[in-house]
Amino acid sequence: MRIVVGVTGASGVIMSRYLLKALKSVDNCEVHLVVSEGARKTWELETGLPLSTLLNLADHVHDNKNQAASIASGSFVTDGMIIMPCSMKSLAGIVCGYADDLIQRSADVCLKEGRKVVLVPREMPFGKVHLRNLLHASDLGCVIVPPVLTFYNHPETIEDQISHITGKILLQFGLRQEGFRPWDGTGG
């Protein structure tokens, strides 16, 4: 399996670290990571961790300005892309086909090739433009997985909440995250 992960400058960049850890635990999963400049700044402001703790979890790290990267071509076969978190700016670029950077170009490639694109939008509240763009993204074939809180699994920490979200994302690719507790009809 080969997955592209884009990290944009929306709040919640730490979630991408949990996602990469989950993908790293999957056998034979090759991760191509692209981190926007905004995400690098947000990482510094929100996490207190060196960015290398994220970058070192990927098999390949691509510069967001490098539109000649392998993942910018449809002939480079992937199983799809996850953008976590997905800023409203990136969302707007994706739905308009304005592939101004590698993250947007990679999403564009996945969509044109019929590959899975999972967007994890981070904004609250959503404005009408955001909602319109999310609907348009869904109409284009993107799967929208907002990072909402879940309680049926009885989370005790923020890490439990994030792990549940990453588990839901992995399900989109037919993958199962260790410790993921799906709804079983009994409340946990």
Rank of each mutant, 00 (worst) to 15 (best):
P146G: 04
L54V: 12
D100S: 14
E44W: 00
L134E: 05
S36H: 09
V145K: 08
G179C: 07
G127F: 09
L111Q: 08
A92L: 11
G167I: 00
V143N: 02
I14F: 13
S90E: 12
V148H: 03
V26D: 05
L131N: 10
P121A: 00
I158K: 08
A58F: 01
D27F: 06
S25N: 15
G185W: 07
Q67N: 15
S70H: 11
D59L: 00
L33E: 14
L23R: 10
P182D: 04
N153Y: 10
Q104G: 06
V77N: 09
E159M: 04
T78V: 11
G141L: 03
A99C: 11
T47K: 07
P155E: 04
S70P: 04
A39W: 06
T47A: 05
S11I: 12
I82T: 12
C142S: 07
P146L: 04
V95G: 05
M124T: 15
L33H: 08
P125T: 05
H164L: 00
N66V: 06
C86T: 14
D100Y: 14
L140G: 08
T8Y: 06
V26Q: 13
P50Q: 10
Y152P: 01
L135K: 14
V145Q: 10
R122T: 13
V77S: 10
L33D: 13
W43T: 05
